[in-house]
Every structure is written in structure tokens, then in C-alpha cells.
Write a protein that binds this DNA or RNA. Structure first.
Length: 320
DNA sequence: TGAAGAATAT
DNA sequence: TATATTCTTC
């Protein structure tokens, strides 16, 4: 079943194309004009802000991969994407961000010049990362949620430990690469001593940034952020939806869950990056607004969560 | 002149 | 933060 992204090039592009066409031509930009609400008036003519939906990003990636990074320039990418209403500037802006993202994944400083070779290597590495089983993500998310939930009973508040547990679980699963580097940025951290993270959840987030890329960032924005705010999402619990999707093991389910809460699946699409986002979201849900997570515990996931808690304990000891 | 890419603004 | 816009360079 569908792993979320074995071959983004073909599958994603096809899916994107199908959806785009199906949705209606205009739809493209369908995207998404954000907001729009503004009154109606508009005259002014300001172009609506383009939102890079998972499908659009899939098309973008497809074009970039086909062209090769060397030849992937805005104009060409735009042509290959063939999205009505999209401008070269839209693509250029996204490409700029994408390149920065690749550099980060490669562990290069932002100002480092990027060689084509490096980028290609990163891309390949990412493809392999995509093969990562989703259960790993589910396990990490569950561990994080369980830990966060437990701590919440003691006094609540945010739980960097849960976040780090998720990071540790994921990075150990991956074994090597940027992931471990990300975690190493917080030496001395342990569940018993979460303050080692320095900045609490933000510290944990910083650790993730080295490996999370789009996925982790999107996860932070869409789920952890609101969770940290303490207010939750007013009944809607994207994290729970994501966990359910993950546990169900379905790529499509995950995508739908992500769409539901505005989480950009272009990030979640990658196995590892998406897993991080989900794990963090789960932790946030448990420590912040836990409705959905709670229902999940009461559900079939309970047993699995307990297992993961033990597993997490082992992880923590390793960290220490 | 138009496009790419970096820097900066929103 | 994500995306848009501006600025510089080619």
C-alpha cells in the first residue's frame, strides 16, 4: 500500500494531473487563493497568494527531478508543470525555498554554494528516506503522545521530552544521516532532564530542523504551534487524525488527514519528514489539546501505545 | 530585455 | 513561516 511516496515523479505527477484536471480547469490555481475573503472588492488587483498544495508541489518536484537540478529553472519548471495561472515568479520563489531546504538536508550552511552533485545526492537520499515504513512513524508518534499524555497528568504543560523521544525513535530507526545529526544538537537531553533542550519545545524543534525540512516545519506550524498555545484547535484535532491515518498505515489516509488540517503534505509526503511532523503533532496534541488524542488512546491504539512507551524508555536510556 | 537568483518585504 | 516582491546580475 501505498507508501506515501515511492516515486513521486510518476505517481504524484499523475495523481496531481488527474486531480487537477478533474477538479476543473480553473481550479488550478485552485489552489488556492488563500483567503479571499476579503471583501469583495476587489479591484485592486492584487494577485491572490498561491498556496503550494501537495499536488502542486508534487508536480514541482516531478519537473525538477526530470530536468535535473542543473536545468531546473523557473521558466522551464513552470512549463513542465503546466499549471494554469501559475507564474514564473511563483515557481522562482518556491524553487528558492526548495533549494534552501536541500542545503539544509545536506547539512550545508545556507550561504554555501550548492553544487549539482550535492543536490542530486540529497535527492537520492531523500528517495531512500521515502521508503521508510510508516509504522516507524506511527511508533514514534505513539511514543511521543504517550509520554506527553503521562506528563500532562502530572501537571500538564509542554513536553519537550515527548518531542525528543519521537526524534530519537525516528533517528535510531533511520540509523544515519542528517537525522542523527539533528538529535545530536541537543547533547545531554533525556526524558528525565528535558530542560537540556534549552528552549523547551522550541529547542526540540530546533533539533528537528536539521532533518525535518518541509515536513517538520509544516508540522510545527500546523499542529505543534497551536498545541503549544494551549488552546488547541477548538475541537478539531489534526494530530489525532494524523495518528489514525498513520496507524492505519495508509498513505492516502495520511494525505487526507493532512489536508484536513492544512498540513502541507508535500512535507509529510516524505516518510521521515512526514513522520516527524506527525510525531510532533501527536506530542503537541497530547500535551496541549488532547481531545482527539485521548479518544485515540481509548481506541484500538492503546495497546500499541503502551508498547511504544516501553520502547521509548529504552530509547531514553540509550540517550543517557 | 528577459530571466535567474539572492535579498528583502509582507 | 510561506509566499511575494524587489533588486542585481547575467
Amino acid at each position: 500500500m501505498g507508501m506515501l511516496s515511492e516515486d513521486p515523479d510518476a505517481e504524484a505527477a499523475a495523481a496531481a494531473a488527474a486531480e487537477l484536471e478533474g477538479m476543473g480547469e480553473e481550479g488550478e490555481t485552485d489552489a488556492t487563493e488563500a483567503g479571499n475573503g476579503s471583501s469583495g472588492g476587489g479591484k485592486g488587483g492584487k494577485k491572490p497568494r498561491l498556496i503550494w498544495t501537495p499536488n502542486l508541489h508534487a508536480r514541482f518536484l516531478s519537473a525538477v527531478h526530470q530536468l535535473g537540478i542543473k536545468n531546473a529553472v523557473p521558466k522551464t519548471i513552470l512549463q513542465m508543470m503546466g499549471v494554469k495561472g501559475m507564474t514564473r515568479e511563483n515557481v522562482a520563489s518556491h524553487l528558492q525555498k526548495y533549494r534552501l531546504y536541500l542545503k539544509r538536508v545536506a547539512g550545508l550552511p545556507p550561504n554555501a554554494p550548492l553544487s549539482n552533485e550535492t543536490l542530486q545526492q540529497v535527492q537520492q537520499a531523500m528517495h531512500h528516506g521515502h521508503q521508510m515504513p510508516l509504522h516507524a512513524a506511527a511508533a514514534a508518534a505513539a511514543a511521543a503522545a504517550a509520554a506527553a499524555s503521562a506528563q500532562q497528568q502530572n501537571g500538564g504543560g509542554l513536553n519537550p521530552a515527548a518531542l525528543m523521544a519521537a526524534a530519537a525513535a525516528l533517528s535510531s530507526l533511520q540509523g544515519s544521516g542528517p537525522a542523527s545529526g539533528g538529535v545530536q544538537q541537543l547533547p545531554g537531553f533525556s526524558a528525565a532532564n528535558p530542560s537540556a533542550a534549552g528552549f523547551g519545545p522550541l529547542g526540540a524543534a530546533a533539533a528537528f530542523s536539521g532533518l525535518g525540512g518541509f515536513g517538520a516545519l509544516a508540522g510545527l506550524r500546523g499542529s505543534v504551534g497551536p498545541g503549544l498555545g494551549g488552546g488547541g484547535l477548538g475541537g478539531l484535532n489534526p494530530a489525532a487524525a494524523m495518528m489514525q491515518a498513520l496507524m492505519a498505515g495508509g498513505g492516502q489516509g495520511l494525505g487526507q488527514a493532512l489536508n484536513l488540517q492544512g498540513f502541507d503534505a508535500n512535507g509529510a509526503g516524505g516518510g521521515l519528514a512526514g513522520a516527524l511532523g506527525a510525531a510532533m503533532a501527536a506530542a503537541a496534541a497530547a500535551s496541549g489539546a488532547a481531545d482527539g488524542a485521548a479518544s485515540l488512546f481509548a481506541d484500538g491504539g492503546a495497546g500499541q501505545l503502551q508498547m511504544q512507551q516501553q520502547q521509548q524508555g529504552a530509547e531514553q536510556q540509550q540517550q543517557q
